[in-house]
Design a protein around this nucleic acid. Structure first.
Lengths: 342, 342
DNA sequence: TTGAAAGCGCTAACAT
DNA sequence: ATGTTAGCGCTTTCAA
């Protein structure tokens, strides 16, 4: 049986309450006694029993708020699955989780939900943010003035006082894609990068990482001018069509964001599947279909489930165990999928 | 606050004890009352509180035994890390985990440890097995006669009565490797498969999956006769050297097991790094080095951490929550790594 | 500054 | 067949 508070108390010749005060730095204790108890606890290899703690703390329930944006995308559904799983788990430890969903991007809705959560007694908030100055200010206010820790996940708010970020290292993801492209694209072919929104940090980073690394690995291939599809299939379609008309040597396409269906339709229409190598992001239904059909060669995943799950768990651990996240940037794995390991 | 046994008892007009008997099928209860209570519990959305249960059960402590073989390999160390992490976690829920390590392969040592664990009161065992008829019989005896569930992980014992297997789908892993090779190997090149031991199921499956799938995808490439390196670098070195001498068109090497260093030394010596594509398995130190250096193009991982972790957690959930694993084969992810996402 | 005790949700032994 | 109760390890309040 593991070491208990009582055993430490016995050995130290004090009561359970005193040991508790010592080990949890609650004050109102003789510093010397505190030292001694801490030493004894360490010697005995004390590990607090989570069950006991959970039970005792279940009166002052932990309450975590989660705000998801763009919930109408299949990708965000996967993030939500991770949140739901974490919710189940921490609920069984006596905590509560409140999930709010926003269709599309709406910073003011997010702010409204944050206020609502504060009023309903949330002790912490996990947020999928969007780029908005007022949202950033709100986050800072929550952290500093209200002492409510906020973590961002999937996207980040650069320069804010959020506790940490959970999501992909998009720059590195772009590089990984370049590594793949450099292996599969034919000599002296031309490669097209189609990004999403010019303002989106994630898209921008992926494109940057890709271009940087492809230039380094494959100086022989020519990078065409970057295009933006604005997450739109029709736009992507037009871009690819134009590229195919302008050069016979289109050898590869890297897509930093949505638009896969548009790209693949054109590729298939011109019978170029497998000849023009396509690499894209996120393991959503359509993407996987085209991967299986071999119109896409590789998909890069960002483990959306882990993003949702870890966000809640990091907050839970902070509130429950008092353990701060060890890193400011908690990157989820860069997952490489071909048609055999989806 | 979540629903408690007491709330259900109040609503049903019975005592906590009765509700407990009803929901946990402990018998000694009026079937009609049992039905009614179960219905009410469902209506109220009852989820047993893990903390309460853990605390109450901590008297009759759960004890899980883990037996690792080939612990002297870096790969198995990663499996062990997963076991250790799970140990920490379940210990904090009041359970105990006993880990035994075996250097190399030694079925009789494994059997001896199993007996030892049974005597020391283990309720369940997780085992990295080896192919041995007596070990198989022992596992069956434990499961059937002693009612001690056993799971196998990393390797399986085909046809035994173990509860389930946690590890890689090696056939599919071989196919994934073939998918990669088919994308990166040049036209009409020759590909060499170097396997480990001819008797090892995992190695055999990987080779089979690879050959099958490469033939299907790339009928233009010629597969050289399969060789066995017996997990030995020197043997692998000789094999590659010979292959390089016999053909100028060696374009790819797939390694199902150990021997990477031998392979890479030769490749580098002849200045063929990057020209002969190398795909191998497992993310161990040496492998990663050669991946970074670009002598290896891809490594396939089998998430050893998850193998160790999940094995313990599956047993814990069975003993603690009474939840059987949902699948007989719990495959860990087939991880693809290039030099950018290690 | 410290000790004593109640109570969190659940299980299991005991009582009815 | 059902009710009652002690107790798991911990936190927190109240008393000393």
């Amino acid at each position: 049986m593991a070491v208990t508070l009582q055993q430490i108390a016995d050995k130290a010749g004090v009561s359970r309450g005193t040991v508790d005060r010592a080990l949890n730095n609650r004050g109102r204790i003789n510093p010397e006694v505190e030292e001694r108890i801490k030493r004894i606890a360490k010697e005995m290899g004390y590990q607090p029993n989570r069950a006991g703690r959970a039970l005792a703390m279940s009166r002052h329930s932990i309450r975590i708020g989660v705000i998801l944006q763009s919930i109408d995308t299949p990708f965000m559904q996967q993030v939500k699955d991770g949140v739901e799983a974490a919710k189940e788990e921490v609920q069984r430890m006596g905590a509560e989780v409140e999930i709010k969903e926003i269709g599309g991007i709406d910073a003011s809705a997010a702010i409204a939900y944050m206020e609502e959560m504060r009023e309903s007694g949330c002790n912490a908030i996990a947020l999928v943010p969007s780029e908005d100055e007022f949202l950033k200010t709100t986050v800072d206010t929550f952290v500093q003035d209200y002492q409510i820790p906020v973590v961002t996940f999937n996207s980040d708010i650069a320069g804010s006082k959020r506790l940490c970020f959970i999501g992909q290292d998009t720059l590195q993801s772009g590089k990984a894609a370049a590594g793949l492209m450099s292996e599969i694209v034919c000599t002296h072919g031309k490669v097209l990068v189609i990004s999403g929104h010019p303002t989106n940090q994630g898209h921008k980073n992926r494109a940057k990482g890709f271009v940087e690394e492809l230039k380094a690995c494959r100086p022989d291939v020519e990078l065409l001018d970057m295009k933006y599809a604005y997450d739109d299939d029709w736009a992507a379609e037009k871009i690819v069509e134009e590229a195919l008309h302008n050069t016979e040597e289109l050898a590869g396409i890297y897509l930093t964001a949505s638009g896969v269906e548009g790209v693949c339709k054109v590729i298939e229409h011109y019978g170029m599947a497998g000849r023009v190598k396509v690499i894209s992001n996120d393991l959503t239904g359509k993407n996987e279909e085209y991967l299986k059909k071999r119109t896409i060669q590789f998909l890069l995943g960002q483990d959306p489930f882990a993003q949702g799950n870890n966000s809640v768990m990091i907050l839970f651990h902070k509130l429950f165990d008092g353990i701060e996240p060890d890193k400011e940037y908690n990157y989820t794995e860069i997952v490489i999928k071909n048609r055999y390991n989806i």
